[in-house]
Design a protein around this nucleic acid. Structure first.
Lengths: 196, 196
DNA sequence: GCGTTACGGTAACATCCGTTACGGATACGG
DNA sequence: CCGTATCCGTAACGGATGTTACCGTAACGC
């Protein structure tokens, strides 16, 4: 062996650089060179870690999903009741601080990129279906007496609302302040009889 | 004068070509050459009609907004009651047929592009605020007794839900069939006491 | 008809892209 | 210490991109 490079750490650093570029420069400027510059290295390292640009994007997308999954599971575990868990998980999907706004911008960038990359769209669908199952499980726990069809419909309504609000806020943070998003979430939960 | 070219018609045709490329090839392949090919002309015509690529995208974005505004106003005028108008306007924002799915893909593409173009994001914000005002007016007409704050909150909840559902369906049409989206809409309207 | 003028296709330009090849540097095994 | 294997920065390549310049061509006024 020669000098041991921490490959997973480098891959994560490069993935974070992808998020950075996506959040602050947009999809059109998401080039290998821009990612390398954001990571403080050269294109040589990037192309040594990943066989090509698409593989880099895929890794960054997967890591983003894994990160948000862990965050959601921590919130779910820390919640005191099913309804609190549901609200906490939905709330983290909103764009209520600068970091979450950046996350939403990145999410939109990956989605737009996925329409031109079969493997990215496959990753999106897989993750989205897991997200949907989680939401249905949380709604079912929050309203145990509901039939499955109602659970599924309300879970879709809530998850779609959160995604849409995050997109709105990402594009126009001043027009969609955190308080407005939270009022929206509580109004929706309350209207469905799911208030904690 | 020489041979009179129908400039507005050409600009519209080029804008439609932009939508076409955005819907079927994605933002990354949205090049001047791809737009020209989709419009059945060469880059020469494109660059004669617009000073540069960004101006072409801006025109296509504005025209898209104007088109959907006209569609929405027709639905609103044809509705028999305020609540029917609200439902019809929200329903057209869903991705319930192939054309609407394409429209949602295009919408996401423009949004992702806007994060790298100050003028595009400005157009988005202006249009989105008009959309929001329309929704608040419709919700207010559907529930005249509500205070303004509740109207605004519910309008945000409904519009965000529709946008999110359209994004979900655009990325995974098989997982979000039209019937599921409509059930979601009716469940949300019903939960807020706005069913027709 | 004919000159003029707008129109738009062709082709070139500089730049940037993803990717590849190479070579210097470095840490480990012996 | 030294050979060697790995790491990664450098630099180049072919191709694509936005944009510009040029020029043939077709229609209108006279």
């Amino acid at each position: 062996m020669s000098r041991t490079a921490d490959r997973p750490a480098q891959e994560e650093a490069l993935s974070r650089a992808v998020w950075e570029v996506l959040a602050h420069q947009g999809l059109e400027r998401l080039t290998v060179r821009a990612v390398a510059a954001a990571a403080g290295c050269t294109t040589g390292l990037v192309m040594h870690r990943f066989p090509n640009r698409r593989a880099l994007l895929r890794h960054a997308r997967e890591l983003l999903h894994e990160t948000s999954r862990r965050r959601v599971e921590a919130l779910e575990a820390a919640a005191g009741s099913p309804r609190e868990a549901l609200r906490a998980v939905l709330r983290q999907g909103l764009a209520i601080d600068r970091e979450a706004i950046n996350g939403s911008v990145v999410w939109i960038g990956f989605l737009a990129a996925a329409f031109a990359d079969d493997e990215l769209i496959e990753i999106h669908r897989r993750n989205n279906r897991l997200w949907r199952e989680r939401l249905e499980r949380l709604v079912g726990a929050a309203a145990p007496e509901w039939p499955a069809a109602r659970v599924a419909t309300v879970a879709l309504a809530l998850s779609a609302m959160v995604e849409g609000a995050a997109a709105f806020a990402a594009a126009d943070p001043a027009a969609y302040p955190a308080a407005a998003q939270e009022r929206m979430l509580d109004a929706a939960l309350g209207s469905h009889g799911l208030a904690a």
